[in-house]
């Protein structure tokens, strides 16, 4: 009976946690559409998640584009198709690399900070204090971050794409000698609005994943990870790992859905 009971308890516990996590997401969406929305907090979070992530996005975007410039040129030159470097760089960035790497960067920079901040608020009873004032903590902690990420992450992804394309241009055109008109002209021929929409849809869903996981892990610090500094540290690590894995899994799901 022992092992069976253990497996049963373990499974029920995991299912309960999963259910709580989905209910958390449901509540986050629910309070995002029911006023009042805390505009001041929303703007502050746009600055934190969006504006303050800009430098890391510019840096990683440029270098990703430059690497794609090299690798794309190397592969395409084998078939004598260097002229298609522009579309290769553009499509890779817009459909795949831009949304995924931007989301991973935001997870590392802002997601971890969100979990740590909310986790500290949980263990120092600040969330309990909000509840005891008869107020809803979701309106102060989750909704502003969710709405801010929905604005910021697609914008950061777009910036990533643009600087990435310019990075690819720098390598392909300035260093390896592909024609400037060819680079942009072929890109305009082969990159459709549908591709841009696909990338943006991905980045919007990644924004939800980042805030969902980061806020959930912070909100339940103590319950799932133990209290104190160690609890916050565990929650932060779990949030970054889980959000990153979910981003990559969800990327596959979306790609296969959009592909078909």
């Amino acid at each position: 009976m022992g092992p069976i009971r253990y497996i049963g308890a373990f499974t029920l516990n995991k299912l309960k946690r999963l259910g709580r996590m989905f209910f958390f997401l449901f509540e986050a969406f629910l309070y995002s559409i029911i006023p009042p929305i805390k505009l001041g907090l929303w703007v502050r979070q746009i600055r934190f998640i969006g504006a303050e992530s800009l430098s890391v996005i510019l840096l990683t975007g440029t270098f990703s584009g430059m690497v794609l410039g090299f690798q794309g040129y190397y592969s395409l030159s084998r078939f004598g198709s260097e002229a298609f470097l522009g579309p290769a760089v553009g499509l890779s960035l817009i459909k795949e690399i831009g949304p995924v790497i931007s989301a991973l960067m935001v997870t590392g920079r802002a997601g971890s900070a969100i979990t740590a901040e909310i986790g500290i608020m949980r263990i120092s009873e600040q969330i309990d204090a909000i509840e005891l004032m008869g107020l809803n903590p979701f309106r102060y902690l989750v909704v502003p971050r969710l709405l801010a990420a929905l604005v910021s992450v697609p914008l950061l992804t777009s910036i990533f794409d643009v600087v990435g394309i310019l990075g690819g241009y720098l390598i392909g055109v300035k260093l390896l000698g592909v024609g400037s008109g060819t680079y942009f002209g072929e890109m305009a021929n082969y990159v459709d609005l549908k591709d841009v929409t696909e990338g943006l849809l991905k980045s919007i869903s990644f924004a939800v994943i980042i805030v969902w996981v980061s806020c959930f892990k912070g909100y339940y610090t103590g319950i799932y990870t133990g209290f104190g500094a160690e609890g916050v540290s565990k929650a932060t690590t779990q949030a970054v790992v889980m959000a990153s894995v979910l981003i990559l899994l969800w990327d596959y799901v979306m790609t296969s859905l959009l592909f078909s």
Binding site: I120, S124, E125, Q126, A129, G134, N136
Partner: peptide, 23 residues
């Protein structure tokens, strides 16, 4: 439930051991 508790809690004042001030 949460919503009903919010209403009851409007009558409450609570002083936490550690203060629980917002940082």
């Amino acid at each position: 439930n949460k919503r009903q508790l919010e209403l009851v809690r409007k009558e409450f004042g609570f002083l936490f051991q550690g203060g629980a001030l917002f940082d």
